[in-house]
Design a protein around this nucleic acid. Structure first.
Lengths: 139, 139
DNA sequence: CTTGAAATCCGGTCGGA
DNA sequence: TCCGACCGGATTTCAAG
């Protein structure tokens, strides 16, 4: 699907604040409110906008990043799907390089991170993991 | 700030779809619309909700993850702030472990990723980087 | 939590490229 | 045919009580 300059601007504005009223977005872009609405629904239908969401951080919560190595013949997407099923997993990236998968998890404490690691290591195809705890997030 | 069970449920619902009307959220939680609105603004003011945003993916765009090592005496947050200034950087995590910082960037091509790496390496305190290209994202 | 007014949302329709 | 502007009625938002 071809995106024009207005679509890109719209995505930037929504990235910054996804709850901006359509009318305000319309004013910023110089088009009508209905046009904004139609563009957004087109972007969602075509899969370009994957989610309208919030970034949040709880005081008593830890974020961790787990790098995962996998082994043939299990396909990497198979492993990814299984990881995604684990509650607390926020996002899964498949990668080039030494590691095949990167997982971001949200945990209530170190014990829960350990549970994540154990669960991930028990998935068929996973050969090893490397975990880093997030100390601070900059958005 | 103490969060009750409703706050946590609210955060989950907003994570799933941040554009859900307050009235619908209210119905789901069994409280009034104004209560939902007040809770949300409290969550935003207290810094728990950091951003209302969209996840999107363009066809001709590449996401990459850059792991960064730094060196004393430059404080890590100093480096993070400098990285965050680079246009195209989505998020910066400070980490425990072998690497001090993880950066997620959005680029129009390999050349742009190279530019990111060069820029990051030129920041005082950065000693080395390791880059992985994202092949697929699971949310 | 309720109320009422203002703003926003949303489907339908029309006209031009 | 596709896109954007316009027009209502329904819904939601928001501040005051």
């Amino acid at each position: 699907m071809p995106l024009d300059d207005l679509d890109l601007k719209l995505l930037k504005l929504l990235k910054e604040n996804a709850r901006t009223p359509y009318s305000k977005l319309a004013k910023e872009l110089g088009i009508s409110e209905s046009a904004v609405r139609k563009r957004i629904s087109r972007l969602i239908k075509s899969g370009i906008i994957k989610k309208i969401t919030i970034e949040y951080e709880l005081i008593n919560e830890i974020k961790a990043i787990i790098l995962v190595k996998t082994q043939p013949p299990v396909p990497v997407p198979e492993v990814s799907k299984n990881i995604l099923k684990i509650p607390g997993v926020e996002i899964v990236y498949e990668l080039t390089g030494e590691y095949d998968i990167l997982v971001i998890v949200r945990a209530s404490g170190i014990e829960m991170i350990n549970k994540f690691i154990d669960e991930i290591r028990s998935i068929p195809g996973v050969t090893s993991t490397y975990t880093m705890v997030v100390l601070r997030t900059w958005i």
